[in-house]
Simulated assay, not measured.
Amino acid sequence: MNNLPRKVKFTTILNILKKRPIPMFFGFLFTLIPLFIFSVLTIVFLSIGNDTPEIDFDLIKSKGRITNAKITDIETQYNHSHNGVHPTIISYNYLEKGKEINSKYKVLEENKIEELKIGDNIEIKTFNGSSIIKDLKPYDFSIWFFLFIPIPFLIIGLPFLIYSIFNLKKELNLYKFGKIEKGKIISMMPKSGFGLFNIGQGIIVHYENEMKNGKKIIGESITSDFSIMSDKKKGDFVPIFVSTENEKKSCIIPKLQSLKNNWNIEFE
């Protein structure tokens, strides 16, 4: 490889990606957007935290000690519901080993708590510093469930993204380190674009070049240089980049990108 790789501007990288717009579109849409959503939800959920202590309900229910507690607050959460019922957070305090303990308990049993009010005494079970309200099951709304929503999108998008990155890396290596040779044009065919803006519109060029062992191979390359259709014809030669590691890898040298990146390549 050349010790000094050719410089490649960001606009040239975008131009490579746009050559295959469909994999790029689905890859970025179904991969990057879900990853962004995943990151935002993670930050939001971590900042919110849990509004009630984490408990092992079954353990406390089986091994807990029954004691009395006094309700200090009852808060209904109207910002979300489950099957039309809003969860309620019951705050209470109790004495344990002479020390007053304050705790909260979230439930979704509207009928069982409708007569409860602040100041009422209730029975709770305590075990190792944790507690539950007797005969009431806790309501645990797992916000982490939402973090699994992007996974199907990632499954769809990752293959497209990997394909786009693979082709980008392959062509970038040719742009940076490929040796300059000549390819003989065999055919040229217009390639339609994608979407309203015809992203990826270009020319598919088939060309023939000779390897070191004298064997001739056929290469295919997509170029966005439409002038090639008027400037060149079948049988003419065009400059190509050929990989120094694998002569079967090659691509047409894009005239416009060569000028933008100051590659100093002569075009006939």
Score class of each variant (00 low, 15 high):
residue 107 V to L: 11
residue 204 I to S: 13
residue 168 L to M: 10
residue 6 R to K: 14
residue 230 S to F: 13
residue 209 N to E: 08
residue 43 I to C: 13
residue 192 S to E: 15
residue 127 F to M: 10
residue 214 G to N: 05
residue 19 K to P: 01
residue 21 P to Y: 00
residue 120 D to Q: 08
residue 131 S to D: 06
residue 184 K to S: 05
residue 209 N to P: 02
residue 249 K to S: 13
residue 84 G to W: 07
residue 157 G to C: 02
residue 240 I to R: 10
residue 33 I to H: 09
residue 31 T to D: 10
residue 29 L to S: 13
residue 15 N to S: 13
residue 3 N to E: 15
residue 121 N to E: 15
residue 147 L to I: 02
residue 52 T to W: 00
residue 169 K to E: 01
residue 23 P to G: 02
residue 216 K to G: 02
residue 4 L to R: 15
residue 15 N to D: 14
residue 260 K to N: 04
residue 209 N to W: 15
residue 23 P to M: 01
residue 223 T to L: 00
residue 191 K to S: 04
residue 225 D to V: 00
residue 130 S to M: 10
residue 176 K to D: 06
residue 196 L to G: 05
residue 251 C to G: 03
residue 214 G to D: 06
residue 106 K to A: 14
residue 94 Y to Q: 10
residue 98 G to K: 11
residue 48 I to Y: 12
residue 26 F to Y: 15
residue 199 I to L: 02
residue 231 D to Y: 07
residue 214 G to A: 05
residue 173 N to Q: 07
residue 17 L to T: 04
residue 250 S to C: 13
residue 147 L to W: 06
residue 61 K to F: 08
residue 118 I to Y: 04
residue 228 I to Y: 05
residue 90 I to Y: 06
residue 138 P to E: 07
residue 144 W to K: 08
residue 139 Y to G: 09
residue 21 P to F: 00
residue 173 N to M: 04
residue 257 Q to D: 15
residue 145 F to R: 09
residue 104 K to T: 09
residue 128 N to A: 12
residue 112 K to P: 12
residue 75 E to V: 11
residue 102 N to M: 09
residue 177 F to V: 03
residue 99 K to W: 08
residue 7 K to S: 14
residue 59 L to T: 11
residue 46 L to G: 08
residue 35 L to D: 09
residue 169 K to N: 11
residue 137 K to F: 08
residue 118 I to G: 07
residue 257 Q to R: 08
residue 2 N to K: 15
residue 96 E to W: 09
residue 24 M to R: 07
residue 39 S to F: 15
residue 44 V to E: 14
residue 220 E to V: 05
residue 65 R to D: 13
residue 224 S to E: 02
residue 25 F to L: 10
residue 255 K to W: 04
residue 144 W to D: 06
residue 161 L to G: 07
residue 122 I to F: 09
residue 179 K to Y: 13
residue 89 I to F: 08
residue 240 I to V: 12
residue 252 I to T: 03
residue 21 P to V: 01
residue 230 S to R: 15
residue 82 H to F: 13
residue 235 G to T: 02
residue 217 I to N: 06
residue 84 G to N: 11
residue 147 L to Y: 03
residue 35 L to P: 12
residue 265 I to K: 02
residue 141 F to W: 04
residue 91 S to D: 10
residue 200 G to D: 01
residue 172 L to K: 06
residue 35 L to H: 10
residue 181 E to Q: 14
residue 162 I to G: 09
residue 124 I to V: 10
residue 224 S to F: 00
residue 20 R to G: 01
residue 214 G to F: 02
residue 187 S to D: 12
residue 164 S to A: 14
residue 205 V to Y: 04
